[in-house]
């Protein structure tokens, strides 16, 4: 199905790769945090990445891509979707813990799956980001992180490695997109 021009314009807004780069880098750092047992990193890395992304967007992307304010309808829709998905995400987490701890009973079952939980939650976050930005590659990242999370349960490597591997893939795609964006900007400036 052909997407509307407004949706394609909104999607293109996220195609510079900075969000992927920062999100991927944050996931790698979270993985390293797990490996080195620096659990403070899990808490601060994502908000920090978001703040750095806003700065990077302003100083690197906007001077080249320009500035746009999307329609109020689009902004309100994004806000509503964000609130809804945060609620759904929290519900899924509570449900997951309830099922594991209460229904299937016992910490042994929780122990088997708990290593996958960080990657699965980040996969959920990636899926939400994909929905909010309409950049569907984030749905692919969600799949990568989910598979990496499942891999930790099978391989018993702990959550850190899954995050490092998944994060590196996201970071790599972000780097490719950013290099392409900067090259396209250079070509555009040269043609002016």
């Amino acid at each position: 199905m052909m997407r509307s021009p407004e949706v394609r314009l909104f999607q293109a807004y996220w195609d510079d790769g900075t969000l992927d780069l920062l999100a991927g880098g944050a996931v790698v750092l979270m993985g390293v945090g797990y490996m080195l047992e620096l659990f403070l990193a899990e808490v601060i890395v994502l908000p920090l990445a978001l703040a750095v992304w806003a700065v990077l967007r302003k100083w690197l992307v906007e001077p080249r891509a320009g500035y746009v304010e999307f329609s109020r309808r689009r902004r309100e829709r994004t806000r509503h979707e964000l609130l809804a998905t945060v609620a759904v995400g929290a519900g899924v987490l509570v449900l997951f813990l309830a099922l594991v701890v209460l229904v299937r009973g016992g910490t042994a079952v929780l122990g088997a799956y708990v290593d996958a939980l960080p990657a699965l939650l980040l996969a959920l976050l990636a899926a939400v980001t994909g929905m909010l930005t309409r950049a569907w590659r984030f749905a692919v990242y969600a799949g990568v992180l989910a598979v990496a999370g499942a891999g930790t349960v099978v391989a018993g490597t702990g959550p850190g490695l899954a995050l490092v591997v998944g994060g590196l893939i996201v970071w790599g795609v972000g780097m490719v997109l950013l290099v392409r964006f900067l090259a396209a900007s250079r070509r555009f400036e040269a043609s002016e």
């Binding site: 407004e6 314009l9 080249r64 320009g66 500035y67 746009v68 304010e69």
Partner: peptide, 23 residues
């Protein structure tokens, strides 16, 4: 005009990049 109809506001550079017109 079609680009501006889709958004609330845009700067000159954004319109330049999106429309492909010369400066």
């Amino acid at each position: 005009l079609a680009f501006l109809a889709m958004v609330d506001a845009a700067d000159f550079m954004y319109l330049l990049r999106q429309t492909g017109l010369s400066r």
